[in-house]
Design a protein around this nucleic acid. Sequence first.
DNA 1: AGCCGCTTGCA
DNA 2: GCAAGCGGC
Length: 477
Amino acid sequence: MSNNAFSLVWLRNDLRVYDNQALFEACQSGLPVVALFIATPDSWQQHFMAPVKQDFIRRRVVQLQTELAALNIPLVAIEGSHYSAVPELMQQLIKAGAELLYGHTEYELRERARDRKVSDIFAKAGKACFWFDRKAVMPPGSILSKTGGIYQIFTPFKKTWLARLRETGVRCFPKPKALPEIKLQLPEFSVMQQGDGSSAAYAVDELHALEQMRQFCRDKAAFYQAERDFPALAGTSSLSAYLAIGVISAQQCINRLQMEAANDWDKEKSGAAVWLSELVWRDFYHHILMAFPELIKHKAFQKDTDGIVWPNDAALFQAWCQGKTGYPIVDAAMRQLNQTGWMHNRLRMIVASFLVKDLHIDWRWGEQYFMSKLIDGDFAANNGGWQWAASTGTDAAPYFRIFNPVTQSERFDPDGVFIKRMLPELADIPKKQIHWPHPLPMWNEYVKPVVDHSKARLKTLELFHTVKKPQDEVDHE
DNA sequence: AGCCGCTTGCA
DNA sequence: GCAAGCGGC
């Protein structure tokens, strides 16, 4: 073993010090520890990762450097390009003394291919890798039906998932104790570039994120069920960006929820239980992604729906992207996404339904647009959500369940408070007409509706009927 | 984690 | 006129 030997912790979507199993185990290895982060903007671009998310990652890595330095762990942050550049970097690190590699597994295809190559390189050099499966709370493949099958329906999945939680709980790993100070010789790498600050609305301090999570569990989880569907309220956790890049883990969220809502988290329909359910959805989509890798290649779950020929009108798509559809709730939601990199979940459902079932545009166009704008973009959850809305997924909404954007608006933004916040040009419209202002003589430039909902709805039913038989014909077969 | 159109029963 | 209940998409 080289006298410059060290354990290497390769950080990716686990940018935290607390509950970081790879980091924790590396610190138990008896060797000095070096942390590694490789920025790969070319690969990120290939995955349409939003600039605001890229900035958030870069800012977080810089902060993490300070947090790890306090533990005497240097964080080498390299400016790379593409995943294909990773093997060469790893070779250099092995040459420098990397003896053991620690990391968390990722579930997407290119990421898994990249990690396999790295594992091979370490194996060929006679070095060991330790991969920990912690992105989902219950590792994909560990929640199976009684006959050993993959659950494709959320409710039974959740039932088994909850039973497992009651049985085993979740384990979180403490922040490692500081290591002895040591001077290592490391190669010169191209230093990671700083971000542009576009994600500045999100603090990157880990303790800040943990405190926000604690406060949500303590003060707001109880009201989650009652408030989560109203975009004008701050009823959701707003933790998605932190979960997406791993500043906090879902395991930590559950542990904290069980502490702060000890009597409620397992009580049906309590706010805490409903929030927990959202974390189960997150796991569900990770499990589905691992079980059906063709999803990564943009295939629909329900294969017949790939027979639908979507009209894909480019002008309508542009109107949707820019928030100029003439449907106030849709336009307000898209403006929230474009301006902040985040969108309330109820609105994600509304605009997704609108794109597919009112504008008749392939759900994949919307999926990609969301990825290109969201600070919390995650392939599994985004793909799962879009296929749910488009009625093409496992456990998807039935195709004939078509949201009426005006009714949704009346129900979930009753006073138009959210709409007016995002669309100041509608500030003077009376409450009663805010959801559909078009009959009013409008002195401003608010755009005319680009489609007629009731006609569009019938067209959607036709599109689905080209690939699905009406129910009564199925019954007679 | 729907909406629509039609019926019924009441004013 | 309308609210509530329903079956179909």
